[in-house]
Every structure is written in C-alpha cells, then in structure tokens.
C-alpha cells in the first residue's frame, strides 16, 4: 500500500461504505463501516473533518493550518491521507 500517492490537487472524499461521525460515548471521532468501527485520534479526527468531497489535499492542509496557526502541518496531513488512502477509507475524486 506504500505505493499510493496523493497529489496535492486531488479532491479527497470518503469511501462510500464509511461514515464519519462524532461519538459521544467514545469521546472521539470514529469511522463506521460494515460491522466495524475505527476510533480516530484527535488529529486524525480533525483531518477527516475536512474530507468533504470538495476540498483538495492541499486545501485540507491550508484549512488546518488556518485552524491551528503557527504549525507546519503539510507533512503530517499528507502522511495521514496516504495511510487513510492505503487502508481504503478515502479515495480521490476525478476533477470536474
């Protein structure tokens, strides 16, 4: 899965079978999928919040750097997106 490359201009969306939501009982964001749940760390949750099917990878970095000023988040965010892509949580959308 390490071959996956996400271009900064690629629009990111959630894979169809996943649902992303805040779980009060877990006090965390989770990804739900058939018969399973992935509990996300705080930072992973913040990134996934920006995955809306309209924002590019670069746009997600920008949004987060605005929300958490003073941090260079590009590397961490892109790394997470690669992992999420490799695990099939997200996909890249064709432009247009």
């Amino acid at each position: 899965m390490s071959e996956a490359r996400i271009a900064p201009e690629a629009v990111i969306e959630l894979e169809r079978q996943y649902r992303f939501q805040w779980e009060p009982a877990q006090q965390s964001h989770v990804l739900l999928y058939p018969e399973g749940m992935i509990k996300l760390s705080g930072s992973a949750g913040e990134i996934m919040k920006c995955v809306d099917g309209q924002t590019t990878a670069a746009g997600i970095v920008e949004k987060l750097e605005r929300a958490f000023p003073g941090n260079d988040l590009r590397k961490d965010v892109m790394e997470f997106l690669e992992v999420a892509y490799g695990r099939g949580w997200i996909r890249t959308k064709q432009a247009g």
Binding site: I38, K39, L40, S43, A44, F80
Partner: peptide
C-alpha cells in the same frame, strides 16, 4: 497521528464497557 483500530478489547479495565453492537 496514530489511530486505535478496533475500539474494544481492554480486558484489564474492571468497569463495564459500552455495548457497540446491537
């Protein structure tokens, strides 16, 4: 940036966990 995979299985805790599956 780590994620916890499947949530359950913390048998060491004595408190009763939440049901996840209905």
């Amino acid at each position: 940036m780590d994620e916890a995979g499947f949530a359950p299985s913390k048998p060491a805790e004595r408190k009763i966990s939440n049901p996840l599956w209905l």
